[in-house]
Write a protein that binds this DNA or RNA. Sequence first.
DNA 1: ACTCTGACTATTGGATCCAAGAGTCAGAGT
DNA 2: ACTCTGACTCTTGGATCCAATAGTCAGAGT
Lengths: 230, 230
Amino acid sequence: MKSETHLKKAHRIKRQSLPEILAESLRERILNGEFKPGEALIQEALAEEYECSRMPVREAFRQLEAAGLIVTKVHKGAVVAAMPAEQAMELFELRATLECILLEHAIPNMTSEDLDGAARVLGELDKAYLERDINGWGALNWEFHRKLYLPAKRTQTLSIVHGINLQVERYIRLELLISKTFEKAQREHSALLKACRDRDSETALKLLNQHILEAGESLVQSLEEKSKPS
Amino acid sequence: MKSETHLKKAHRIKRQSLPEILAESLRERILNGEFKPGEALIQEALAEEYECSRMPVREAFRQLEAAGLIVTKVHKGAVVAAMPAEQAMELFELRATLECILLEHAIPNMTSEDLDGAARVLGELDKAYLERDINGWGALNWEFHRKLYLPAKRTQTLSIVHGINLQVERYIRLELLISKTFEKAQREHSALLKACRDRDSETALKLLNQHILEAGESLVQSLEEKSKPS
DNA sequence: ACTCTGACTATTGGATCCAAGAGTCAGAGT
DNA sequence: ACTCTGACTCTTGGATCCAATAGTCAGAGT
């Protein structure tokens, strides 16, 4: 009996509405740095660019606003949200707290499939790093963490953490370009996965906590350097 | 020199867009239980009720969806989100974690104005309780907690916690009607405020943690009883 | 009697149109 | 020369209209 779980999974087709697609695309472009903090997003321009009317754009804006990526003022439009260094650090501390909770609950439930899946993503992550594929790296990075947290079966926490990750990812990407954080993260990911395999919660949690907080600190540091070049 | 801080505060007028107002109103009605989990929300009906077109309603839906209060399917419309008991407990645990962090950071920064403000809200809370004003109680309850957390100066965490509170408030309200949770909460609030006044972090955190987790447990218990009346 | 199909209806998704608010710039008045 | 005002423009907010899809129900064929 093959225990493949494809029994009834049907082919999951897109089934996405235009606003969702737009929101995703715009988020990607914001994370890429194509739209910089403070920059205004004009509905009509984007509508023309995506060859649709302004309406889907408007609904996409609502989603992005709820996610904290843009801020809108009545009759004044939307601008990309800025994030001061202290807020960034707050988000990293939040991540550290919440992701450690997730990992703690996940470790006892991890199957070898879970671990192998995470290992596979880690491989892809390495490849993305070698090819300097920053966009891909961002998505894969989250995918790796997500794989580790899924067995915790805490969907609400996971979705909140996902939101926070998206918010900070923008800055992480900038940081990645100019530092050695990449290799450091890769080493830490490996160590983390190993601790999970060993079911060594204590080590795993310590590693994860460090992994996130140090990333935050190095990011905040480089943010502050950049803001005071005088 | 009067240290009143009204120097430049101008009069903060509404400046709210229709979709925001609608989202607020609809959220309130969902929290009230007027719209029950699983119930479909029809754009046109709501548009007519609020005497506007469907468009503001649609944008309000996007906001509510992002807040997790409704779920929408393409071409099928929006239904009020249901919440299984286990997810409710997860949210309460999240609250306990995050709100304790907030309080921990807030206590050292609290001024006597902060404490007096909280005390004042506590009084209103009591009044709302005596008048059985459930709606008002919900808002004031959050206001009380918020007052305690504001000095932590962690806006992101605060806004996430706010979102979680809104999600569980719906069930809390139902629970309040049928149990003694009300008086219990009131007593716990008083004790909590006193510990804050004494700058006794240890006691305050323990109280807050209990306050939230016990509320969660009693809620989940009554949810399970209701779902298995057979 | 059962099932499959096709038309009909209810409701949402998207486009276009009009109104209203915010910013800008020129011109008049002091 | 400076400031205030008003018209003009750019952009968003909201309404209405048309297209597309899911659900339903009746009817024909087996």
